[in-house]
Design a protein around this nucleic acid. Structure first.
Lengths: 175, 175
DNA sequence: GTGAATACGTCAGTGTTGTTGACATAAATT
DNA sequence: AATTTATGTCAACAACACTGACGTATTCAC
């Protein structure tokens, strides 16, 4: 179908050419980058007998110590039944402790133990190294461009949740 | 659970910064960015009765039409049993056709059908839009910084596989 | 104070996507 | 002719998500 209809200036000489301008290249780069990015902790996790779901939980409990179960569910966007199975293993293993909410005793604040902090650190280390490698030689301005890109790729509510964490430090208790 | 004023002695010290310089911030940004990035096609896929695995296959068969099963396995880094289940559904559904390899008739070249190309396009469209939004207002130089970052986040062999794709357009049939 | 709503936990079943292991077949290689 | 290679397939299993239903403790609203 090589008619000269009112199509824009897209060169479409092959029959396989897509009808629209789609950024397959970056889509693919994101796929590979993320897969390799997660492969580092995945390898470590099997040594602990854990999976990727454990990593996410330990990460967020470390980043936002004292967060409630409901807050964690909102961050992960999974059901409480999915969370329960994995969270229980982390509690039983002594990586996370639950503390009754000070204001609302129905709530369970989740806190990392020393063991939990070490696990989170262990899992994050190779990822942080990979990021450092990828960022090596970039200026602060360029790093900002990259971070802005990541933020702009998110949905607004994810953006708000990232922004809600005090910059790079472990969270401070409120009240 | 009896005292109401005494703050329990948590086995943690939340004011402590991590022992090492870990980039928790970007790690978290990557998690959210990727999750939201994949949520777009995930929603569409359920309407087709497909899953994320179908997306990956359709994407790569479209990007590299005529690739063999072995090549696809190498790209996805999954087992042939995992691939088979999903690939069969795409073939049965008329999204992908198999062609005996011209040089080696044991091989099965995978080609998208028109239906398959439309599926790949449909799934990629919201992702491409999201990328375009995130890239809006960035200079060509800045875009290059972002792409370079993504490439540098990959393992070397992933990098080679991305680079091995002809152009930004869907590949040309080998004849 | 009583009843409804909320926060959380749990039991039971299901689906997708990954895994290992074993075996079959056709075609290429030696 | 024997072996290796490319692919397919059967069977079992695990991780991690889902829905639906139900239980308990606590808080809120009237």
């Amino acid at each position: 179908m090589t008619s000269e209809r009112a199509k824009p200036a897209f060169p479409e000489h092959e029959q396989d050419a897509p009808a629209t301008e789609i950024d397959f290249s970056i889509i693919e780069q994101i796929f590979f980058a993320y897969r390799d990015f997660t492969s580092d902790p995945d390898h470590l996790l099997t040594q602990y007998g854990f999976g990727r779901a454990h990593h996410r939980i330990v990460h967020f409990v470390n980043r936002r110590p004292g967060l409630t179960v409901a807050e964690l569910l909102e961050l992960l966007k999974i059901t409480k039944q999915s969370l329960a199975r994995v969270l229980k293993q982390l509690i039983d293993g002594g990586y996370i402790v639950q503390v009754p909410g000070p204001r609302d005793r129905r709530q369970r604040e989740l806190h990392p133990t020393e063991k939990g902090r070490m696990l989170a650190l262990d899992l994050a280390t190779p990822q942080s190294r990979r990021i450092a490698r990828a960022l090596a030689g970039t200026s602060p301005r360029e790093r900002e461009v990259i971070e802005q890109f990541l933020m702009d790729m998110m949905n607004p509510d994810s953006r708000a949740q990232v922004a809600a964490v005090p910059t790079d430090r472990t969270a401070v208790e409120k009240g």
